[in-house]
Amino acid sequence: MRRLLSALAVTGCVIAAVPTVSLAQSLPGFTLFSGVKSENQLPFRLDFGGQSNSWDRYRLRIPAQKMKLAAAQFAITYPEYYKGTFDTKDIEIQVKGKKVPVSEVKWDREARLLEIFPEEPIPAGSGVELILSNVRNPAFGGTYYFNCQILAPGDVPLLRYLGTWILSIN
């Protein structure tokens, strides 16, 4: 009887010590065979778990070391087979945890391009988080490559590639 109680007590402690699984999904530490070099993979978080055919919030991050130029525009392209929707009225930019005013958001569905324009250019060397709220995930799961490009103020009007977010929708 003593052994049984001891075994139950140890089992209870082990079960209680296991951390609770979070609903949020974020960039894995190591991705095999993505076709995107690890230095070009950008971190992200899907606040509501990335479930297919459900609402979510995408937190697309750009580390400070990637922001070598100031940004007057962020351009996000996504694949043709991504059939989700974006709420252009509920997109924000955060720098160092502080909200930056957004002057305009354009979504060209045919070109699969989401353009985000801050009121003032984001300084070079700033860590940026693009928050896309009220996103409707595609009805079918899959892996989706969202590419990030920026336009520097006063620069030749060419978008410069910063990296790729590799999102998995279950």
Rank of each mutant, 00 (worst) to 15 (best):
M1A: 14
M1E: 13
M1G: 15
R2H: 02
L5N: 06
S6I: 14
A9Y: 04
V10R: 09
V14G: 00
I15G: 01
I15L: 14
A16K: 01
V21H: 03
S22Y: 05
L23S: 11
A24W: 10
A24S: 14
P28K: 06
P28H: 06
T31K: 10
T31I: 15
V36A: 03
K37S: 14
L42Q: 00
L42D: 01
L42I: 03
P43H: 05
F44V: 05
F44Q: 08
L46I: 13
Q51V: 15
S52E: 13
S52D: 10
S52T: 06
W55N: 11
D56M: 04
Y58V: 09
P63C: 04
Q65H: 10
K68G: 07
L69V: 04
A72N: 05
Q73N: 08
F74V: 04
F74L: 07
P79D: 09
Y81D: 15
Y82V: 00
K83P: 00
K83A: 07
K83L: 13
G84F: 05
K89W: 00
I91T: 06
I91W: 02
E92D: 07
Q94S: 03
V95T: 05
K99C: 00
V100F: 08
V100G: 06
P101G: 00
V105Q: 06
W107G: 00
R112M: 05
L113I: 02
I116G: 01
P121V: 04
I122V: 11
G125W: 08
G125P: 08
G127N: 13
G127K: 15
V128T: 12
V128Q: 09
E129I: 04
I131R: 15
N137R: 10
F140G: 10
T143G: 07
Y145H: 11
A152N: 07
D155E: 14
D155M: 07
D155K: 10
R160A: 08
R160W: 03
G163V: 11
T164Y: 12
T164C: 15
I166K: 11
I169H: 03
N170E: 10
